[in-house]
């Protein structure tokens, strides 16, 4: 059975016991998908599944606390669910998880960098290629070249937690060494170059907080320190300093919590590679605590606990 048919069948079976099921449907054109809230059996027909289903729908889960909802997750998205459970931000009995073994989703910014997507007429998948039809003709791109960065180093193509799995579990064929490749590139720059790099990128940040609001682990939302009035932690100005400050604030608050889903960067309307900032923190957390967020329900996240002597932090040697 096709993945989509299996999903639909499983959803049909659970729909009565939940308020809604969150999946994806076609968006405003054939290149864009949009989250779908399935409330009745007729809505199920609108469900789609393909490499354009980019959103990490787990971002919606904390909004529905207190209601039982169903959710479709890719491998990466399942890590968010686990982390939310670890932090008790959601209850296991309140979510029905429909897992999807995933071969990767696209990065629309990578496609936009190569094809004028303003008048897309059709999109199809041919083996390992995506074909995009525009008034200028059809363009085929190898999927491998336009996959989301997280997919290129994906270690968890099959969800780590689920109630239903649509299809056979698959295992990763991606080298784990690539996980921090972009971060390592930036680390090699000397501080001045690194600062210039981020200055150049962050210049175009508009402080719209799409990164914050798309982040499934950013749970303060309405009460964020970035727009707190009292204390007035952060100036509302939009100079480069405030933009740095905001991005660092976000990354730091995600230390040991970020599941590397990339929603921050995907949501950024200015296509700023901000996931790299979060990834840098993830790398530090991995080196300091050997921790990777959202892969083990039983573990307490490192910054949720305290040890007098952290094995990897040689405080006495400072």
């Amino acid at each position: 059975m096709e993945i989509l048919d299996k999903l639909k069948e499983d959803i049909r079976g659970e729909l009565e016991g939940v308020s809604l099921v969150i999946g994806w449907e076609r968006g405003y054109d054939s290149l864009h998908t949009t989250p779908l809230f399935i409330r009745c059996p007729e809505d199920i027909d609108r469900l789609i599944w393909n490499p354009l289903c980019v959103h990490n729908l787990a971002s919606y889960l904390p909004w529905f606390k207190g209601r039982r909802v169903g959710i479709l997750v890719k491998g990466c998205d399942s890590r968010t669910v686990i982390q939310l459970l670890q932090e008790r931000l959601i209850q296991r009995e309140e979510v029905v998880i429909f897992g999807i073994p995933c071969q990767g989703v696209v990065d629309l910014a990578k496609i936009r960098a190569r094809v004028d997507c303003s008048q897309v007429r059709g999109v199809s998948f041919k083996g390992d290629k995506i074909a995009i039809e525009t008034p200028q003709g059809q363009r085929e791109l190898p999927l491998e070249e336009i996959l989301a960065t997280k997919c290129i180093s994906c270690q968890y193509p099959t969800p780590l937690i689920y109630d239903h799995l649509a299809g056979e579990a698959i295992s990763s064929h991606r080298p784990p060494g690539l996980l921090f490749a972009e971060v390592e590139k930036i680390e090699k720059l000397d501080p001045k170059e690194r600062f210039a790099y981020w200055q150049q990128e962050l210049q175009r940040c508009i402080r719209c907080y799409a990164c914050r609001n798309a982040c499934p682990l950013c749970v303060c939302q309405d009460f964020c320190a970035a727009d707190a009035r009292d204390p007035h932690w952060l100036s509302q100005k939009t100079g480069i300093g405030e933009k740095f400050m905001w991005q660092i604030l976000h990354a730091i608050h995600l230390a040991g919590r970020c599941t590397d889903c990339g929603e921050c960067e995907r949501a950024c309307p200015m296509d700023i590679p901000i996931q790299r900032i979060r990834k840098k923190i993830n790398k530090e957390i991995k080196e300091l605590f050997g921790y990777e967020a959202g892969v083990n329900l039983e573990v307490t996240p490192p910054l949720y606990t305290f040890q007098v002597e952290e094995p990897a932090i040689k405080e006495r040697e400072w």
Partner: peptide, 8 residues
Amino acid sequence: AKCISCGA
């Protein structure tokens, strides 16, 4: 329902 309440 799907809005994430950002300012984009």
